[in-house]
């Protein structure tokens, strides 16, 4: 849309047909812009109110002495870097970061591999594949806390089903949740179990999108199943894989309810994550300033990955995928 230029030499103010056209076009544009903003406004206000404001507030809070008193008096004196120093100087914070990363990496690896394997398995239609797939979705339907409570019983050292099962093969009872060296692994295993359905469903959907002809062509070119999987399935699945991994990352890194119900962060802090740490600081010790510090670190880590995700996506778009 281009605005017609009024020819030189026309008297200003005179309503030449050109001017009328231009003015009405301008008016139309302003009005359209106003409407655009009016329709964007609710979403924008929502974003600012429910995401921007808490985010900024959380950052500010991490520099304040924010205690129960603040709620009564509204006063939260600034203390500079005191909160950051206290949190970063605590050995538990370093442990929690490592444990969070281990937990996230382990969970994603397990969920994704098993989810992908199951998705590929079910993409070959066979009898009863539908019902079995439906049953595999069950972990997703069970509330996280319920799963954790059930797994706590399954993994009980003395009477748990898991150890009874292992003893059939002559294995000693494993202190799944009672030993600091095993507890994090147990939490990862439970989280893998919870996350498999999500990965499977999304990847299965992605697999359905891959045109059959590609596989047929690969087969004609003499590609075996493994080669076809590596050179056809995986590249075609790439956008879906990034979505699954990024969403999985976001929901895993902030884990709280699973850990609280499964081990409460113990034994001996071996399953403390950034999520449980911020919960403990903010809601048990009621030191909201220090809790905000850990929350900010969590947001920062998530933000880094969100940006990575956007970049990868843009690169994909650039290639026309």
């Amino acid at each position: 849309m281009t605005t017609p230029h009024s020819p030189a030499g026309t008297t200003p103010g005179a309503d030449s047909p050109h001017d009328v056209a231009r003015r009405s076009a301008e008016r139309g544009r302003t009005r359209r812009r106003l409407y655009q903003w009016l329709f964007v406004a609710p979403a924008l206000l929502y974003m600012v109110g429910f995401f921007g404001f808490p985010l900024v507030n959380n950052v500010v809070m991490s520099f304040q002495e924010y205690t129960p008193t603040t709620y009564f008096t509204g006063e939260a004196p600034f203390t500079g870097l005191d909160n950051w120093r206290a949190v970063l100087g605590d050995g538990l914070f370093t442990d929690a970061i490592w444990q969070t990363l281990l937990f996230t990496a382990g969970s994603l690896l397990g969920q994704f591999t098993i989810g992908l394997a199951l998705a590929v398995f079910f993409s070959r239609r066979f009898r009863l594949s539908g019902p079995i797939r439906a049953v595999l979705l069950l972990p997703w339907l069970v509330p996280m806390v319920v799963s954790a409570v059930v797994w706590r019983r399954i993994m009980d050292q003395d009477h748990g089903v898991l150890n009874s099962f292992l003893s059939v093969f002559g294995m000693d009872a494993v202190p799944w949740l009672a030993s600091p060296s095993v507890a994090l692994l147990s939490a990862v295993l439970v989280n893998i179990w919870i996350g498999i359905p999500f990965n499977m469903v999304i990847l299965y959907g992605g697999l359905q999108e891959i045109p059959r002809e590609l596989h047929e062509a690969a087969a004609l070119d003499g590609a075996g199943p493994w080669r076809a999987f590596r050179s056809v399935t995986l590249p075609m699945l790439r956008p879906v894989i990034t979505v699954v991994l990024v969403l999985g990352f976001m929901s895993t890194i902030k884990v709280l309810d699973l850990i609280l119900a499964l081990t409460g962060g113990g034994p001996a802090d071996s399953t403390q994550t950034l999520g449980t740490l911020t919960y403990q600081l903010s809601f048990l010790q009621l030191d909201f300033g220090q809790g905000a510090v850990v929350g900010n670190v969590l947001i920062l880590i998530s933000a880094v990955f969100a940006v990575l995700y956007l970049r990868v996506n843009r690169a994909d778009l650039g290639k026309g995928k």
Partner: peptide, 24 residues
């Protein structure tokens, strides 16, 4: 060619936006 969608009649648009803003 641009599709001309977007601007609904003014009589609907303004009250709609007002209601959405007031809800908050």
């Amino acid at each position: 060619r641009r599709p001309t969608r977007g601007t609904p009649p003014r009589s609907v648009a303004l009250p709609l936006a007002a209601v959405m803003a007031a809800a908050g």
